[in-house]
Simulated scan of single mutants.
Amino acid sequence: MRALIALAAVTAIAGCVAVVPIDRPSDYTTPSKLTSCRVDLPQDWKDRLSRDRTEAGSHEQVTVVGANENGDATLVKTTRNRTTELVLRDSKKRQQVMAVQNDAQLFGVEFDGRWVTFSTSPSPADRTTTTYAWDARDDGAPVRIGGAGAVVHNGKAAWSDSKGVHVYDLAKKKDKVVGRGSSPAFLGDAVIWLQDGKFRAVDALPEQLTNAKPGESVASDGRTVVWTQDDALHGWREGWAEPRELAGIKSAARTEGIVFPRVSGDFVSWQSESSYVTDMRSGATMHTTEGAYWLEVHGGALTQQGWRVASSAPLSSLSPLPTC
């Protein structure tokens, strides 16, 4: 196991702090804000999540923060005895990626099946960000690649900072600034990003995205791109004649809009004071007010976190959400 990286030993470089979900109590619930099709949490989803469950001790916190395309290899963040450890595990082995002294120091984890990117900060009070890449095949030490949270796809990482939008070839260790803007996402092997309220790209942008008016939150799994637009979640993938509205919420003053979308295959998870999962095939969205059911998609898995419980289920094993 690699030595614990001491608080003072984490390299810090000034840069843009990655936006990360706010920690909330594990039994936090809120009424549904949906104005679009809402369905209940299917029983088979509960059953499948219960098959791969990690029970945490009273002084332990366990969260599944990444998964490969099949959902059979997961990245797990575990905090115990004031030490937080990021571990890649599957049925055969366990590989430590990094350890730090506080849970809030490690965030923004992404995984493309081989490469892991993640960010650290020197302390909970100092959110100066350093971003690393780690190769699961080599199992060596993480390598610093930048000073802002990254997304990763097919061996390339992308992020934005004061210099612009970066695309980093992880195997070749080469960084290239491709434009000015923020919120980069991969669409195929190309990178798109936001600039002046519009999508931009190095080459021609898909025509269907030219008139989109995305908000600050954008996500992609390489095939489908989703974004927030006012009080709605929109998405587009190749083969669709135009973008679609995937879900909508009621607008209310001083409350959270749609934030932190994540997309994988036909499912999109997102947050608005609690968690939601939308099935793009049926147009239905699942929202539960049950404690211990904070749900997100990561790679090929649906993950659950809650009070002393963490679990994941391959998306391929879940039934489609029914139409309303």
Rank of each mutant, 00 (worst) to 15 (best):
A9G: 15
A9Q: 15
A14E: 14
A14L: 07
G15W: 07
C16Y: 06
V17Y: 05
A18K: 05
P21G: 10
I22L: 13
I22E: 13
R24Y: 01
R24C: 02
P25H: 04
P25Y: 04
S26T: 04
D27C: 07
Y28A: 11
T29N: 06
T29L: 00
T30I: 05
P31S: 14
T35N: 06
T35F: 02
C37Y: 00
R38Q: 12
R38G: 03
R38P: 09
V39R: 11
V39G: 07
P42R: 03
D47S: 06
R48L: 03
R51I: 00
D52Y: 02
R53Y: 02
T54W: 02
E55P: 09
E55I: 09
A56N: 08
A56C: 07
G57V: 02
G57N: 07
S58Q: 13
S58N: 13
E60N: 11
E60T: 13
E60C: 14
Q61A: 12
T63W: 00
T63C: 01
V65I: 07
V65M: 04
A67V: 02
N70W: 01
G71D: 06
D72W: 00
D72V: 05
A73H: 01
A73I: 10
V76L: 08
K77R: 12
T79N: 01
N81Q: 15
R82F: 02
R82H: 04
T83F: 02
E85D: 15
E85M: 07
E85F: 00
E85N: 14
L86H: 10
V87M: 14
V87P: 15
V87T: 15
R89G: 03
D90R: 10
D90W: 08
D90P: 03
S91F: 01
S91V: 09
K93E: 14
R94T: 11
R94E: 14
Q95E: 12
V97A: 15
V100N: 15
Q101N: 07
N102E: 09
N102F: 01
N102Q: 06
D103P: 05
A104V: 00
A104T: 05
Q105G: 13
Q105F: 02
G108A: 13
G108D: 14
V109W: 06
F111G: 00
F111M: 08
D112I: 11
R114Y: 01
R114M: 03
V116Q: 12
